[in-house]
């Protein structure tokens, strides 16, 4: 760094007191600014919680506890019950998670334990690409390509062969809970896969060698050494995927059909918490309506805060033992 040092050289020859004073002032100011900026993160988080709470107060006072189990959502009549949205969010995210988890873990294992470095790297890059696609584009593809396909082929097929089950009864709409589950699955798989991949890469090779030296096949090595070692990290990845699925807005809004109805059938349209906010908030018919939507947002915020904290704690726990042993 020849240039900065040259520029600073006169400072060295200045009287020491002046130098120290100037340095101290500059340092004090600079540090102050950075502290302020760092604290702003914490401030924003608190501000979000407080602001959401205060804006949902009218609804909390009016509806009370019946807000959560209430099934009726009538902006004109002023009755607000959030159950259909809570139900839709829970079912869509849990089902998509159930589908995405095995796929993601298997893909991550394929990248780190089966494929050679070049192929694995290529697959990992493609998965990253999948994770970078904006959700509105997933929604666009979902509503214009996937939903019509579901309506034409998949849903009639399910209805014909499994229609006796309540889960697959009713006419095929295309836009449905099934569409939401599938699009969510496609969206969270890359997230779970890439975090799981990082967790697996952090496992020391000595663990794999220990299993292989005992005469384990590759799968036995995975079951004996890899998965148990990475289990809390993988759990963290899955929970992070759940958080993403619950909060996902655009893609789900575009394919779920937006009907506040609790139905067991996956072929029926449904509604989720973020979707109702996206659809109704900008044109809320009354202050109470807006506050009710805020309260749904507050519920969503609390749930995602809990889920994300849990996931981060699990993922932080992973890195420590690896770092210590390496």
């Amino acid at each position: 760094m020849p240039r900065p040092s040259h520029a600073e050289r006169p400072v060295i020859f200045l009287p020491p007191r002046w130098n120290i004073k100037r340095g101290l002032n500059g340092d004090f100011l600079f540090k102050g600014v950075t502290v302020l900026f760092a604290i702003s993160i914490l401030g924003i988080l608190l501000l979000m919680a407080v602001s959401m709470y205060r804006q949902s107060l009218p609804s909390i006072h009016t509806s009370g506890w019946s807000f959560i189990p209430g099934k009726e959502w009538d902006p004109v009549g002023g009755t607000f019950g959030a159950l259909p949205y809570i139900y839709g969010s829970l079912v869509s995210s849990l089902l998509s998670l159930a589908l995405a988890t095995p796929l993601s873990i298997a893909t991550a294992l394929f990248i780190t334990e089966v494929a050679n470095r070049r192929v694995g790297g290529m697959i990992a890059a493609l998965v990253e690409l999948l994770a970078a696609i904006p959700s509105v584009i997933y929604g666009l593809w979902g509503v214009l390509v996937m939903a019509p396909w579901l309506q034409r082929t998949v849903e009639p097929f399910l209805n014909d062969h499994l229609g006796f089950l309540p889960f697959f009864s009713g006419p095929p709409y295309g836009v449905s809970m099934l569409a939401a589950v599938l699009i969510l699955m496609i969206m969270i798989v890359p997230i779970i896969t890439s975090i799981t991949k990082e967790v697996l890469l952090a496992i020391p090779d000595s663990q794999r060698e220990a299993a292989v030296a005992l005469g384990a096949t590759r799968w036995e090595m995975i079951r004996m050494a890899v998965l148990p070692y990475g289990r809390s990290g993988i759990l963290g990845a899955v929970i992070l995927g759940l958080g993403r699925a619950i909060g996902e807005t655009m893609a789900v809004t575009m394919v779920i059909g937006n009907t506040p109805k609790i139905s067991l059938s996956l072929l029926d349209p449904a509604y989720t918490m973020p979707s109702v906010i996206a659809n109704e908030f900008a044109e809320a018919s009354s202050d109470l309506h807006a506050a009710a939507l805020m309260e749904i947002g507050l519920l969503l915020l609390v749930v995602t805060l809990i889920i994300n904290s849990l996931a981060r704690l699990l993922l932080w726990g992973v890195n420590r033992p690896t770092g210590g042993q390496a």
Binding site: P204, Q207, E209, A210, V212, A213, L214, A216, P228, P321
Partner: peptide, 18 residues
Amino acid sequence: VTMRRRVGMVFQKPNPFP
């Protein structure tokens, strides 16, 4: 896999399954 059951190995750092 079968061969390694006849030839066991102990490593530099202890590596029990945690």
